[in-house]
């Protein structure tokens, strides 16, 4: 995500404003990182370098903070964003197992995305559906009373959607071309 060759120029414009406001202010690191996460959806290297330079914080420290808190991510979020609730109720009723199963199956931990950019996992605080815990969402779809065993099925559903989509894409393209 180079500042210049990015389609999201307006995001950089807004982010630069935040940076300028906090120029030389080391204690603003967390605030600025939140802003970056919110704007870009993740905090790529170029953004971290700009933060390091503008706030006058060593890059090694910026990265240290980004990797310490799991609400910051280093990779863009997956097309399918899996959010597992770890509020008290969900926690008590097995959210950790669910999370672990997702991580094992996809090979990435919370705050990370699969290399193909399809799935990302994150931990969220209470979703307010404690009666149905453990609860999780994939994008806008809500899943209640989730069991570890049903995880492959959930993942398959989105993977299938993916196949479907690319098939349609090809079809449309073929139609256009003929």
């Amino acid at each position: 995500m180079k500042e210049n060759d990015c389609k999201c120029e307006h995001l950089w414009a807004e982010f630069n404003q935040t940076l300028e406001k906090n120029s030389g202010n080391r204690s603003a690191l967390i605030t600025v990182l939140h802003k970056a996460q919110e704007l870009f959806g993740y905090i790529p290297r170029e953004v971290q370098i700009r933060i390091a330079e503008e706030l006058e914080i060593p890059l090694a420290d910026v990265y240290g903070v980004v990797t310490f808190y799991n609400f910051f991510s280093l990779k863009p979020q997956g097309k399918y964003k899996i959010s597992v609730c770890k509020g008290t109720s969900c926690y008590v009723r097995g959210a950790s197992g669910v999370l672990e199963r997702f991580s094992k199956t996809l090979g990435v931990g919370p705050g990370d995305s699969t290399d193909d950019g399809q799935f990302s996992i994150e931990v969220v605080r209470c979703l307010g559906a404690c009666g149905l815990s453990p609860v999780m969402t994939v994008n806008k779809d809500v899943y209640a009373l989730v069991k570890q065993e049903s995880i492959p099925e959930i993942l398959d559903k989105y993977a299938a959607e993916e196949v479907q989509e690319s098939a349609t894409d090809t079809l449309q393209r073929d139609q256009r071309e003929t």
Binding site: R45, Q48, P58, L59, A60, D61, V62, Y63, G64, T67, F68
Partner: peptide
């Protein structure tokens, strides 16, 4: 006053290294 290295990640993954776990040669 260089600070090319710092603690990164947390818990079991914690490591003292440059940002992005880059090689020292690529850093300041």
């Amino acid at each position: 006053s260089v600070k090319a290295i710092a603690p990164q990640n947390r818990g079991f993954d914690a490591v003292v290294s440059p940002a992005f776990e880059a090689g020292l040669a690529e850093t300041e």
